[in-house]
């Protein structure tokens, strides 16, 4: 068996909209994709082609309609499509990370605790997790006075930096990265690019959506085009 970290085989996804009279919306059909450690695959294709749907399916956030999603987890291959909720939670704790476009704010929880949470979930002691979180926040130029505040009142850019720090806090072997540089200024975008580069060099397998062509050219090892089904049909 070759050394891939993530492989989707014949992955399909159709949404059934019961509230619209059961309209069926096919988005993915028999998508296959393989990512090796150290690779960064950029998903391309027009808006609405299903890039985000594919990412969410790979994370188990969308329920796949068919096909397999093989993930190397603790040395063995696990099919995320059939792993069930508890299996997916275990994968998410140690193997698959997801950096979304928006921070989901948790009331009253300060920024550094939000960043430290994935480390705590993986079993790191609190003090250690918090200081790792602070190092990342500092690197992303988030003012220190904000660290102990809940990010609800932060600007969009500040929230996105907290989000990035949280996403990159734990060294997941597989990372899904959705528009990491959106709403960032050039300096912080450069930090985001560096974080991705570092993840690659430690051997993470990365799948990403990068609208910024410049960023894409710098981080992607190759591109994978997602073709809109309407166009393909």
């Amino acid at each position: 068996m070759s050394g891939f970290a993530l492989r989707a085989e014949g992955l399909s996804k159709t949404f059934t909209l019961h509230l619209q009279g059961g309209v069926r919306l096919p988005v993915l059909h028999e998508v296959s994709l393989e990512v090796r450690p150290g690779e960064c695959v950029a998903l391309t294709g027009p808006s609405g082609a299903g890039k985000s749907t594919l990412m969410r399916a790979l994370y188990g956030n969308y329920l796949p309609g068919g096909g397999r999603i093989l993930v190397r987890h603790r040395g063995a291959l696990v099919d995320l499509a059939t792993a069930g909720p508890r299996g997916i939670l275990a994968l998410r704790r140690e193997t698959i990370g997801y950096v979304s476009q928006f921070l989901r704010v948790i009331p009253r929880v300060p920024a550094r605790a939000i960043v430290a949470e994935p480390l705590r979930a993986a079993g790191m002691a609190e003090a250690e997790a918090l200081s790792a979180a602070e190092r990342l926040l500092a690197r992303l130029n988030l003012p220190q006075r904000l660290w102990s505040l809940p990010p609800a009142t932060f600007s969009g850019g500040e929230q996105q930096r907290v989000n990035l720090a949280r996403g990159f806090a734990y060294p997941y072997p597989v990372m899904l990265v959705d528009e990491p540089t959106a709403s960032l200024d050039p300096a912080n975008a450069a930090v985001a690019v560096a974080l991705i580069e570092e993840a690659k060099s430690r051997g993470a397998a990365i799948v990403g959506i990068f609208h910024d062509a410049d960023v894409r050219r710098r981080v992607a090892t190759r591109e994978h085009e997602v073709i809109p089904l309407a166009a393909a049909a």
């Binding site: 509230l19 329920l63 997916i88």
Partner: peptide, 21 residues
């Protein structure tokens, strides 16, 4: 039944979809 974010973001049953919507 299922993973919380999956049920909320990709509800399958008509009633779940109504609830989320």
């Amino acid at each position: 039944s299922g993973l919380t974010d999956q049920v909320l973001d990709d509800p399958q049953h008509p009633y779940s979809q109504l609830l989320v919507a």
